[in-house]
Simulated assay, not measured.
Amino acid sequence: MSKVHLFKAEMTCEGCSSAITRILDRMKDKGVESVECSLPEQTVRVKSTLDADTLLEAIKKSGKACSYVGKSS
């Protein structure tokens, strides 16, 4: 079952959010359904069947500091 996870990520420009989105988009065949990055809020919202730790490790591959906030609605 899909859950929506919320992460905080240091993003300073569109390039930062695009990098995170690209990484997570590559995981669509593994369970990622949608990705929404918000530069003003410095958040990444991911709807996925994957667990938060797996998603967090993927976001860290962008080189941006990030942390898990919790489940979102």
Rank of each mutant, 00 (worst) to 15 (best):
G70P: 00
T54V: 07
I59D: 00
L39V: 13
E57Q: 12
G31D: 02
K64P: 00
S73L: 04
A19Y: 03
L39S: 12
I20C: 01
A52Q: 08
C66F: 01
D25S: 12
K64A: 14
D29V: 09
R26Y: 08
M27R: 03
E36Y: 07
S18H: 14
T49P: 00
V46N: 02
D25T: 08
M11N: 07
R22M: 09
A58P: 01
A52K: 03
D25G: 04
S48A: 13
E36S: 07
S67M: 05
G70C: 07
S72R: 06
K47M: 12
I23W: 01
H5P: 04
S34V: 04
K60D: 11
L55E: 03
E36T: 12
L39Q: 13
T49H: 08
S67H: 10
R22Y: 06
E10M: 13
P40N: 13
C66P: 00
L24H: 01
F7H: 01
E10P: 03
L55T: 02
S38V: 06
C66N: 00
S2H: 15
K8D: 10
E33F: 04
V44I: 14
H5R: 10
S2K: 12
L6K: 13
L24E: 06
S17N: 11
A52T: 04
E10V: 15
V4P: 00
I23H: 09
A9I: 09
K8V: 01
K47F: 05
L39W: 14
R26H: 09
R26F: 03
D53I: 10
D51V: 01
L6E: 11
K61D: 13
C16I: 09
D53K: 11
D29R: 15
T54A: 02
K8T: 10
Y68V: 10
S34K: 12
S67N: 07
E41S: 06
E10T: 14
T43V: 06
K30T: 09
V35C: 05
S48L: 10
V35T: 03
S17M: 15
V35D: 01
V32N: 01
T43L: 07
A9S: 13
K28D: 07
S34D: 14
L6Y: 06
K8M: 08
L55W: 04
F7Q: 00
R22H: 12
K8N: 12
A65S: 10
A19K: 14
S2I: 15
G70E: 06
I59K: 02
H5I: 09
E57G: 04
L24Y: 00
D53P: 00
M27V: 00
E36W: 00
G63F: 10
T43K: 07
S18D: 15
L50M: 13
Q42F: 07
L6R: 08
K60E: 07
T12I: 12
A9D: 01
T21F: 02
L24M: 04
S38Q: 08
V46A: 00
S17C: 10
K47V: 11
D25K: 13
